[in-house]
């Protein structure tokens, strides 16, 4: 039964996630919240593994979530669920490619869909921030604002933002470099 449910959840994700791999993130959070199959922290780890291993990130995340939830059969079923809507939609559209690309209605719908997708990804990103950089439990216990922030994490984030956005020599590097570098920092500075 869990396999059927996995297939259905990922079918929905594949059908409504517009704009590539990261767009699946808000749907995965929604799955985590509703089913309890995995936690927000686990999901953040899955993103890291998905980015640092071969394969499209969206597919990697589906496989990882499926495996965590129901082992090898889960990994296969979740991934198939994710790609099934793509296959159906593309097979339909392939016959009418030109009309589809020039269709005003499709174009207008995507004008609304793109900012929607970004809004959803940004909100899901905030959930990762909460897990990675804030001590919400500690804050609610002590009520001290200074204890809300994980200062070590904030410092690392600041360095990473500078390296990935501003330093010319490092900003073109593949994310895997930053992920591995962060792992090293985490071990050395006992995060």
């Amino acid at each position: 039964m869990i396999l059927l449910r996995l297939f259905w959840e990922f079918f929905k994700t594949g059908l409504f996630a517009v704009g590539g791999g990261m767009a699946t993130l808000p749907f995965l959070y929604s799955i985590a919240e509703r089913t309890g199959w995995f936690t927000a922290a686990q999901l953040a780890d899955m993103i890291a593994v998905g980015e640092s291993t071969p394969g499209p990130i969206g597919v990697n995340m589906a496989t990882y979530v499926g495996f965590t939830t129901a082992g090898v059969p889960g990994a296969i079923i979740a991934t198939l669920g994710l790609v099934t809507p793509s296959v159906i939609i593309i097979l339909i559209i392939a016959r009418v490619l030109q009309q589809f690309r020039q269709n005003k209605l499709v174009d207008a719908a995507f004008y609304g869909l793109r900012p929607c997708s970004i809004g959803l990804i940004a909100a899901a990103g905030l959930l990762v921030v909460k897990v990675a950089m804030l001590h919400t439990d500690l804050y609610f216990e002590t009520g001290k604002l200074l204890e809300l922030f994980n200062w070590k994490a904030l410092a690392l984030a600041a360095v990473l933002v500078v390296l990935t956005r501003f330093v010319k020599r490092t900003k073109k590097l593949h994310p895997i470099v930053f992920i591995l570098g962060s792992a090293l920092v985490g071990v050395v500075f006992a995060f």
Partner: peptide, 27 residues
């Protein structure tokens, strides 16, 4: 666990960068 705690921070930055990149073409 320490490694992944720091990797999660990196993931935040990667998502932030992805949002900015998508933003340019969409908003």
């Amino acid at each position: 666990q320490s490694a992944f705690a720091a990797i999660r921070v990196c993931v935040c930055v990667l998502i932030f960068n992805a949002v900015l990149k998508l933003w340019k073409g969409a908003v």
